[in-house]
């Protein structure tokens, strides 16, 4: 888990606004003035089933290999076929296990000064991004039910989104208390800034959205309408 940079809670330092260009720095689609405030991978408990699985399969693999080598003499065609099959299966599980570990490192949850982003990336097949803008968050809930959740300090962050009555759940989030508190602070700060119409270094915080872009409505217009309503 990354620590929160307190400078960004109540505002944005001028020097970082002007000098730093964060475009695509830490994830695809990061905006120029978008700063990462909290970032985490999911709790390592999610890889525990894979560790137990590979341990079990390794035990079975060694039992078969040594059992076969004791019973079938070396060079026997049936023994070769059996061992080839066993090695093939074990290699498959080995690659699967290590790819799960690599995928674990690529799946991150990020809180920036504009939005909450879940980057669901795998080595080969998946490259998804789930984003919620801070001004759309209506309600926040933290679920931490169960013995393991309490002992290992992980939980589910439930984000209720306004207008579309949708909820976004981030499961297996480590240190959910910190996320809950920080997200509330950042959201409040963001809304206050928008209400006060304070420009960030002279730049409009336009966040790209394919949905809005398709219908030709810019995000800044929606921001302004929301501010008027508030």
């Amino acid at each position: 888990m990354f620590e929160l940079d307190e400078r960004y809670i109540d505002g944005f330092p001028e020097e970082s606004r002007e000098e730093v260009d964060n475009t695509d720095r830490s994830f695809i689609g990061q905006q120029k003035h978008e700063e990462i405030m909290l970032c985490t991978r999911l709790h390592p408990i999610i890889i525990l089933p894979y560790v137990f699985g590979i341990a079990l399969i390794t035990a079975i693999f060694f039992a078969i290999v040594y059992g076969t080598s004791n019973v079938i003499p070396k060079g026997e065609i049936m023994g070769q076929i059996l061992l080839f099959g066993v090695f093939s299966a074990y290699m498959y599980y080995l690659h699967r296990f290590f790819n799960k570990l690599l995928n674990y490192y690529l799946h991150v949850v990020i809180l920036t000064n504009y939005r909450v982003i879940e980057v669901i990336k795998t080595v080969y097949f998946c490259n998804n991004k789930d984003t919620i803008d801070l001004h759309k968050i209506q309600d926040l809930k933290k679920d931490q039910d169960g013995l393991f959740c309490t002992i290992f300090n992980y939980g589910t962050l439930v984000v209720e989104v306004s207008a579309i009555h949708e909820t976004k759940r981030v499961r297996y989030l480590p240190n959910p208390d910190k996320w809950f508190q920080t997200l509330n602070k950042v959201k409040r700060s963001y809304i206050e800034r928008r209400r006060a119409k304070v420009p960030r270094g002279g730049h409009s915080p336009v966040v790209q959205s394919s949905t809005y872009d398709k219908v030709g409505v810019s995000r800044s217009m929606l921001h302004n309408q929301m501010i008027r309503v508030l």
Binding site: M1, F2, D24, S26, F27, I28, C39
Partner: peptide
């Protein structure tokens, strides 16, 4: 390509 802040890496 997409580095997360390294100083706070766990």
């Amino acid at each position: 390509s997409y580095r997360l802040p390294r100083g706070q890496y766990q």
